[in-house]
Design a binder for these strands. Sequence first.
RNA 1: GGGCUCAUAGCUCAGUCGGCUAGAGCGCGCCCCUGAUAAGGGCGAGGUCGGUGGUUCGAGUCCACCUGGGCCCA
Length: 972
Amino acid sequence: MANVYKSTLNLPKTAFPMKANLVQREPETRQRWAKMDLYGMIRAAAHPKGRYILHDGPPYANGDIHIGTAVNKILKDIIVKYKTMQGYDAPFVPGYDCHGHPIEHAVRRELAGKAGAMSPVEIRRRCEAYARKFIGHQSEQFQMLGVLGRWDQPYLTMAPAYEQREMETLAHLADQGLIHRELRAIHWCMHCETALAEAELEYADDEGPSLYVLFKVIKQNPDDALGIAQAELYSAPEPVYLMIWTTTPWTLPANMAVAVHPDYEYVALRFSFRNEKRIAIVAKELAETVKQAAGLSDAEELFTIKGEDLAKNVTYEHPFMGPPPGAEARCVCADPTMVALEEGTGLVHSAPGHGREDNLMGLRFGIPTYSPVTAQGRMDESVPDWIQGKTVWEANDIILKHLAESGHLVASGMTAHRYPHCWRCREPVIFRATEQWFVALDKADEGKSLRHRALEAVGGVHWLPAWTESRIRAMIETRPDWCISRQKVWDVPIPALYCKACGQALLTGDMMRAAAKFYGRHGSGAWYEATVEDVFGKAPACPNCDAADWRMETDVFDVWLDSGVSWASACEVEGFEVPVELYIEGSDQHRGWFQSSLIMGVVARGQPPFRTCITHGFVVDEEGRKMSKSLGNTVSVLDEVKRLGADVVRLWTSSVDYTCDIRASDTLISSLQDAYRKIRNTVRFLVGNLADFGAGTDTVKPGGMEEIDRWLLARLQRLVADVTAEMEAFQFHRVYQLVHLFCVNDLSAFYLDVQKDVLYCDATASPRRRSAQTAMAHVAEVLVRLVAPVLVHTAEEAWSHLPAPAEGNATLRSTRREESVHLAAWPQVDAKVLDEDLLAKWEWLQDVRRDAYAVLEAFRRAGKFDKHTETRVALAVADAAELQRLREVGAETLADLLLVSELLLVAPEEAETLEGEKAMGNADDGKRLHSATLLVQEYARCERCWNYRASVGEAEPEDLCARCRQVVAEQT
RNA sequence: GGGCUCAUAGCUCAGUCGGCUAGAGCGCGCCCCUGAUAAGGGCGAGGUCGGUGGUUCGAGUCCACCUGGGCCCA
């Protein structure tokens, strides 16, 4: 039924659509930004608070962005946008990590066999093209998320200027004598034929051989033995063996020693083996386990000997190798770090050429590093001919058989273990001793070691969350020397020289600075086609033999050195002050970028390159498990953006506590749609009710405003204060909760619901309507700015629909409607408006309202009425003071708040005399109301405002209340 | 196996110095409205605070151990 009075109402009107249609609208918004050069405008604007540099950690230029990189960039964008609005100059220069094994590996795979015939320069050219392709993809994808930055000019670690600055920075390492060349057991991928850094390994569950092997002790005259403890060892009539346990038989040829724990007790077991009696030494605590595992059913314990005694001049024969290369004999060594009682026999096979621990032990005991395995993973010519040329995996079986035949194998089987694999080719890796360049962490000829300096620097950084400080500290404390050379081509070549005459390796700071200039001019790939003179001018004389004939290094630097100097190559060259304000990355970067950057900052500038370092968690699936393609639980962020829009993905990002694991799924991200719509619709409703509001002429001064409107403005100040505090603490999920709660509770369910009558039905220019609009205009403007860092597109859209602000409007901070919300200033708290007493009073009124609603709901359920506006209600309040306070507020005001047509406030005894239906509130449950009485409705309904009023029918037209009669009369 | 870390309604989060009958919003269920309408409002049901011990008058909160996840390392 058409209502004749509907046209006389002030119903909401706005072009700001309810339906977001983000998928279509967001790209349009971004096109507008591109056209107006929003990023340039922001840069050109005034920045009263100075510079705020959030330095982008460069993602690897390989593949599409994923949910994790998206979360990372969104967090960065939120911070940059917020700081910009706060008045900082916060440029965002995105970067890409371009060099490194993954790209080279992908390119070589694409080339298949053809790579072998190609020059390094040609392969590098293809690597560069590969990187550029993905830089293009990722840049586009990041921008789809609404991330604003200098996308047309990112920093690239492969740019010659970057490489130049990198080499200049790395020269400090050489200047400080921290670079050295050493034979070290390192992770080696025999498939890719390269050394691998820790970060390039993936551990996977694997199965491998498990065998118990006997090493025969070389008997000495018992009288010559040291100490009584050893006498039994040599006086036994049976042969005595050391029993070791290994899962890598191919390392047995490289065995140089057996380690025991000095404090452990070892026991001699006599058992039957191949028709003879033998004695084997094992740790006492493991004896039972070994007996069972090795099937030594008749083993009897003869005597015990302490580890430290066992390590005194006891030597043994290798089962199939000759004398140890570079040493007189293989002996038992006491080393507590090598031995544990979790598995094995308590005697540990040590091959310094094929294990990190073994390698370190070798250094401690002066045992040579023997590594008879080639780069291709084959046994070299120093081993017996029956395994020469075999791969290590082939050697495993052959050695096992050989040991069994020669009577050195007690037992063998298979065992599950976590084994490291190459992160690119997925092949299992081995430990192999090679000559590599290292950064020394503990070298302290003069002053403090680099490790020490780095640890000191950790204390100067603000780590968020706080526990990350101890994590990175522990990592720096325990990390091994940094292996910085790789046998690859797609990275910065190490500008080292090798003397052809004497083999001396040479790498100095001056050489690196010369190379820096050369790389800057020609790109680092030119190294491969250059002569020594091209790079260094004149060939230096060999410090060892004085010759000047050099071979140029073919290894390149570790890719982590590239990104580790980005603070220099990307920030300093821009003129950004280092340390920069903020690094924020995932928790894996404690071992990666955070650490490499910190170490290089300490080396080259004596301080960390960042003031604050934030760590965020990893994105995991709905159950909290890691995402993997094989599990099929990944979330495609690009699909989510195409499905829901970037702002919903951004809202989701902002809604979670990123310091722990972040759970993600289609469902979880979709669930933010409701919150998004609530915020959008709330803003839309505000805007819709401001269609006729001219801020210049219609604004009501604070003194002339209704109390509820002054409350709203105070509430808004509270919100601004709280949100600002949470933004400062980078607690975006609290911001989300605060804003959402404000929209849901304070605006939608309370203020806006209550004010609809005034907004719709009062005369357009009535003082109390203008008062409400003044408050709402302010709320809309502030709210849009508060959500702008997160809902970058939606806020922009809403911004364009806000009513024009007035010149000198006291309630609006900004008098200029900037062309973009991202150019606007962050709202400031107005302490004069933030009236705590008023807030407390209205919190109480909201509580009263909630209580009354709970009681009234019983009537509605009983079918007594449908709408509150139909009702006349008497509230009986038991507490006299409470009743008095409510009477001071006024029954009429309360009626408006409860949306009822009339309200009576009575004491409980008065309620008894009232006619009508009663419903009891429970006075004991802490609620303020004693009871509510639903009174007989005596008034007629006003056909315009739908309120039941005594004034309806008092005059013509008889179907209107007094207020509406006057409004309608004025309109005609 | 080691270091660090996380665990509170279906979901996302609060819960300060130990005082709690453990809160909120969303979602869900029921109801109302149809003048925010692919909207709006109301009420309600949801929890052994991962588990087990301990300290304490009192533990979601402190301690120990365990379980399950995550990152990093072996």
